[in-house]
């Protein structure tokens, strides 16, 4: 599908989503749908660095948490709108991605992954010790009332998250089909060969870190508005990092569609498990599904299609 047509379809999806508050009356669907869409954004962001460029990031929650806290900070300090909060979170995520990339991209594989976990701990510790951000006990975040058209705060943040998901997917798709995406995939396959083909590997990896970080932080920005409360344990939860990794692996990391499929499947199962079994079942579900895919479909659901086509 051509990029222009893809954008039109994406905008149609967004427009349809905007109509949902007028059609669906039960706010729970928006409450659960928000989480699914949030993970679409996180998984799509993760996949830019982890999937396209092949650098596994275990520290997604650092970016998500940084975005959430940046949004809360901007609201508390300046009272800005949620859109400015998202923009601020995105900028912080990109800068954090650049800094992390600059410090860690010379190391590869498992060492890079470990370094990203350290980032979560560092940021969480910083927030724990910052009184202005509520410290360890967290902070309340009483956002401005949602515009009347949406019928409630939950519906409003759902639509905002849908917009973010559409934007993230369009960005991922554009990267995938562009020279940047080919450069990322060349890096993933072989950095020396990429360099020998004229690909500026370090610059592209920094770009991947910045874009990935920006998207994941943007996913965190509406979180304080969604929950009305922000604490470091939930904002920097390792479950977010685990999901960010598991979802693209389940769907497939080669294409923008993989993280979307993975996020919709896994997040839906988690939401279902939360209301039918227990919220603790989430982690077990992620673990079991991840093991099953690593064994049976290491390249995810889309990889199965690729494999059957190649056979």
């Amino acid at each position: 599908m051509k990029m222009t047509r893809f954008i039109i379809v994406a905008l149609l999806v967004f427009a349809t989503g905007l109509m949902l508050p007028k059609v669906v009356s039960n706010p729970y669907y928006f409450y659960a749908g928000y989480v699914v869409l949030q993970y679409v954004v996180i998984a799509t962001g993760w996949n830019i660095l982890g999937g396209y460029a092949g650098y596994t990031n275990f520290g997604s929650s650092a970016f998500f948490g940084a975005g959430a806290y940046m949004a809360a900070f901007l609201f508390k300090a300046l009272g800005v709108s949620i859109f400015v909060q998202i923009l601020g979170a995105c900028v912080v995520g990109m800068l954090l991605g650049l800094a992390t990339g600059y410090l860690t991209l010379r190391i590869q594989g498992v060492y890079f992954a470990i370094a990203t976990v350290a980032l979560v701990i560092v940021l969480e510790t910083l927030v724990h010790n910052t009184e202005y951000l509520g410290g360890a006990s967290g902070m309340t975040h009483l956002a401005d009332p949602a515009p009347a058209w949406f019928g409630g705060q939950t519906q409003y943040v759902f639509c905002i998250m849908l917009g973010l998901a559409v934007a993230a997917v369009v960005l991922a798709r554009w990267i995938e089909v562009s020279w940047i995406g080919r450069g990322f995939r060349a890096i993933r396959a072989s950095e020396p060969a990429a360099e020998a083909s004229g690909v500026p590997t370090l610059k592209l990896k920094l770009l991947a870190c910045a874009l990935s970080g920006g998207v994941m932080a943007a996913a965190g920005a509406p979180y304080p508005t969604y929950t009305s409360y922000l604490d470091p344990v939930s904002a920097f939860s390792l479950l977010i990092g685990l999901n960010a990794l598991a979802m693209p692996l389940i769907g497939g990391t080669r294409s923008w569609l993989g993280p979307v499929i993975g996020a919709v499947l896994l997040a839906s199962v988690q939401q279902l498990a939360t209301v039918t079994i227990s919220s603790e079942f989430n982690i077990l579900a992620v673990g079991l599904v991840l093991i099953a895919f690593v064994v049976a479909a290491p390249e995810g659901l889309l990889g199965l299609r690729f494999r059957s086509r190649a056979a």
């Binding site: 995939r185 993933r188 396959a189 072989s190």
Partner: peptide, 12 residues
């Protein structure tokens, strides 16, 4: 340059 052990961009 080419490489002693071929390094194709797998996945492409």
């Amino acid at each position: 340059r080419s490489f002693q052990i071929p390094r194709p961009f797998l996945g492409m």
